[in-house]
Amino acid sequence: TEIRININGVTIHVRDASEELKKLIEHLLRLGADEKEIREVLHRWEK
Rank of each mutant, 00 (worst) to 15 (best):
R39E: 05
R30M: 06
T11V: 13
L24A: 11
R4T: 11
H13V: 10
W45T: 02
L21E: 01
I5S: 01
R15M: 13
H27S: 13
D16G: 14
A33P: 02
A17D: 04
I38Y: 01
H13N: 07
G9N: 10
K22D: 02
I12Q: 01
H43F: 12
L31C: 04
G32I: 01
L21D: 00
K47A: 15
S18C: 03
T11L: 13
E20W: 13
V10E: 07
A17Q: 04
V10N: 08
L31K: 09
L24H: 09
E40S: 10
E46M: 15
E19K: 08
V41L: 14
I38H: 00
V10I: 10
I38Q: 00
K47V: 15
L42E: 00
D34F: 03
I3Q: 02
I12T: 02
W45G: 02
V10D: 05
G9A: 04
R44W: 11
E26S: 15
L21H: 01
K36W: 13
E37D: 09
R39F: 07
I38G: 00
L29V: 06
L24F: 13
E35T: 05
L28Q: 03
V41N: 04
A17M: 07
H43W: 14
L28A: 09
L29C: 04
V14Y: 05
H13L: 13
A33N: 03
T1M: 12
I5C: 04
E35I: 11
E40W: 14
R15L: 12
E37I: 12
V41F: 15
T1K: 08
E46C: 15
L28M: 13
E46H: 15
A17R: 03
L21R: 01
H43L: 14
K23I: 11
I3Y: 09
I12P: 00
I38P: 00
L31D: 04
N6Q: 11
D16Q: 13
I25A: 01
N6L: 11
A17N: 04
R39C: 05
N8T: 04
K22V: 12
L28V: 04
E35C: 06
K23A: 12
E2V: 08
I12G: 01
K22M: 14
L29S: 02
T11I: 11
I5N: 01
S18I: 04
K36L: 08
H27P: 01
S18Q: 07
R4L: 13
I7R: 04
I3H: 08
I25E: 00
V10M: 08
R15Y: 14
E2Y: 03
L24K: 09
L21N: 00
H43A: 13
E26Q: 15
N6K: 11
D16L: 06
L24S: 05
H27T: 15
A33D: 01
H27R: 14
A17V: 09
A33Q: 03
I5D: 01
N6I: 10
S18H: 06
L28T: 02
R30P: 00
V10Y: 02
V10S: 07
A33G: 05
K23C: 07
R39Y: 05
A17P: 11
D16E: 12
E35P: 07
W45Y: 06
V14I: 10
E2R: 05
R15K: 12
I38C: 01
V10C: 06
E26T: 15
I5F: 04
L29I: 07
L28I: 04
E46P: 09
H43V: 09
R30W: 14
N8W: 02
V41P: 00
V10T: 12
S18P: 14
A17I: 09
I5T: 02
A17Y: 07
R4D: 07
K47P: 11
K36R: 09
V14G: 02
I7T: 04
L24C: 02
E40N: 10
L24Q: 13
W45A: 03
I12S: 02
R15E: 06
H13T: 11
R15N: 09
L29G: 01
D34I: 04
K36T: 10
K36S: 09
R15D: 08
V10A: 08
K22I: 14
E19I: 09
E26C: 14
R30I: 06
E2S: 09
N8S: 10
I25N: 00
A33Y: 07
R44G: 05
E26A: 15
E35S: 08
R44H: 09
L42T: 01
I7F: 06
N8I: 03
R39N: 07
E40Y: 14
R4P: 06
L42P: 00
V14S: 03
R39L: 08
N6A: 10
I25W: 01
I5W: 00
S18M: 04
E46Q: 15
H13S: 10
W45M: 04
K47H: 15
L42A: 01
D34Y: 04
V41Y: 14
N6V: 12
H13Y: 11
R39D: 15
A17C: 05
E20L: 09
A33H: 04
H27L: 14
K36H: 10
I25M: 08
R44F: 09
I5V: 08
E20N: 09
L42R: 00
